[in-house]
C-alpha cells in the first residue's frame, strides 16, 4: 500500500479528535472522506501533512515512516478550503512558487508554469494578480501550484466548499482530469455526499474521529449511516404523484 495509517490518535486538551484511525490507500488513487463538521477530518489531514503531531499511531508513505519528518520533508501538499493565493504574486508567481522554493532554474520554472497554465485553461491570465480572478480561476491556480510540485500525496480539505454549483462541477471535472494526468494520490475531504461519491476511487465515512472505509461504492450506498438512502428517498418523494 502506498499510504498506510495505523492506530492514529490525537487529542486537544481532553477532547479525542482522531480515535485510533487506520486506513490504507493505493498509489494514484483518490480516497473521498465524507464527514460532518467537527468529526476530525481536518485534524486527520493536518496529522498526515505534519502540521500537527499525533499522540500515537503511525503514518507510512511508500513504506517510509513519516514520524519526525517536517512538513517540507514529507512532500505532502495540504490544500485548504480557501485558495490562499499569495496576494503579492501574479498567477505565474503563485503557480511557480513551490518550484522556486526548490531552487529550480528560472527557465525550467517558466516552461513548467506555461504548461500548467494551459492545462488549467488559464491562458492569457498568467500576469494577472489574484484579486483580478474569479473564485473558480483562483481555485485552479491553487491546484496548479500544488500539483506542479509533484507531491507524493495531495490532501484536499473541502477545496470546492466556497464555489457556486456550476463552478464546483467544472472544478470537480478538472480535478479528475489533472489527478489522472499527473498520477496523483490524494485524500479528498468533503461534507457533500454527492461530491464524495463523484471524486473518490475509494470512499470512507468519518464519525467522531473514526473512519470507516468501504470495500466498494455499493457498500457505501447501501449503508444507512451514510445518508445516501435518505437522500434518494427525499428525491423520490418529490417525484411521486400528489394524490
Amino acid at each position: 500500500m502506498f499510504l498506510e495509517i495505523k492506530q492514529l490518535s490525537k487529542s486537544f486538551q481532553n477532547d479525542l479528535i482522531v480515535d485510533r484511525l487506520s486506513l490504507s490507500l493505493d498509489q494514484h488513487r483518490t480516497l473521498s472522506i465524507l464527514g460532518k463538521s467537527g468529526c476530525g477530518k481536518t485534524t486527520l489531514l493536518k496529522l498526515i501533512a505534519g502540521l500537527e503531531t499525533a499522540d500515537q499511531g503511525s503514518i507510512r508513505v511508500n513504506g517510509e515512516d513519516m514520524s519526525g519528518k517536517t512538513p517540507a520533508e514529507r512532500k505532502i501538499v495540504y490544500l485548504y478550503q480557501e485558495d490562499l493565493l499569495f496576494p503579492h504574486l501574479s498567477v505565474r508567481g503563485n503557480i511557480g512558487f513551490g518550484l522556486k522554493l526548490q531552487k529550480i532554474p528560472a527557465s525550467d520554472i517558466k516552461e513548467q508554469v506555461d504548461l500548467m497554465i494551459q492545462r488549467l485553461e488559464l491562458q492569457g491570465q498568467g500576469d494577472k494578480m489574484p484579486h483580478q480572478l474569479s473564485g473558480g480561476q483562483r481555485q485552479r491556480v491553487s491546484f496548479g501550484r500544488a500539483i506542479i510540485t509533484n507531491p507524493r500525496l495531495l490532501l484536499l480539505d473541502e477545496p470546492f466548499g466556497s464555489l457556486d454549483v456550476g463552478t464546483r462541477q467544472r472544478m470537480q471535472e478538472l480535478f479528475k482530469e489533472l489527478t489522472a494526468l499527473y498520477g496523483i494520490t490524494s485524500l479528498f475531504v468533503t461534507h457533500d455526499l454527492k461530491e464524495a461519491i463523484l471524486m473518490g476511487d475509494d470512499i470512507g465515512l468519518m464519525k467522531k474521529g473514526s473512519l470507516q472505509v468501504y470495500p466498494d461504492k455499493q457498500d457505501f450506498l447501501l449503508d444507512p449511516g451514510t445518508g445516501v438512502r435518505s437522500e434518494i428517498e427525499f428525491w423520490e418523494s418529490l417525484l411521486k404523484p400528489n394524490y
Partner: peptide, 22 residues
C-alpha cells in the same frame, strides 16, 4: 489566515525561513 499561509509554504516544501522571507 496568516498561519494558514505559513503552513501552506511548509507543505509546498519551504522552510520556516522561506515562509517568513517570501
Amino acid at each position: 489566515r496568516t498561519r494558514q499561509f505559513e503552513q501552506l509554504v511548509l507543505t509546498l516544501g519551504g522552510s520556516s525561513r522561506q515562509a517568513f522571507v517570501q
